[in-house]
Amino acid sequence: MEDYIVELTVNGERISSPVKPEESLLKFLRRNGFTEVKCGCEKGECGTCTVIINKKTVKSCIMLALQARGKEIWTAKGLEKQELGRKLQESFVNTGAIQCGFCTPGIIVTAKNYLDQNPIPDKGEIKKAISGNLCRCTGYKKIVDAIYAVAVENQKSI
């Protein structure tokens, strides 16, 4: 099949690249150097490939690159450029919420997007919000603590 051209912005950077219809957004991003988006189960269950598209989280493994044409995408690395993203990254380090680190990019993206919409959640709400992201090391406690610490900080600044 012929190639299609996909134009989109990733972390504020414009990208234009030929793709085949069968290429997933995940593979497209990794091919273009955004390797912070991880390949996990590749069927929409584990959540480590989560990215933000037009202000909503999606799992990039079950989306075609072609479906993202003209859209604005943010990955875990790009979130450094935003204050909340940076705070979350620091909080994950300070809390020890990272063990092997494979799930971390997906969880930071999910948490960032969730806190944008709901800045001061309780721990129960945080657990629900990250229910689509699997972590096989931490048992989630420290991940929830890390996100909650940012929420507490948000509350203080209001």
């Binding site: 085949k20 219809p21 069968e22 290429e23 997933s24 590749e42 069927k43 075609l64 072609l66 479906q67």
Partner: peptide, 15 residues
């Protein structure tokens, strides 16, 4: 098994 990639070729339309 999960092939992890889309193994078949197809044509795509976005009307």
């Amino acid at each position: 098994t999960n092939t992890k990639i889309l193994t078949q070729e197809f044509e795509y339309f976005a009307p």
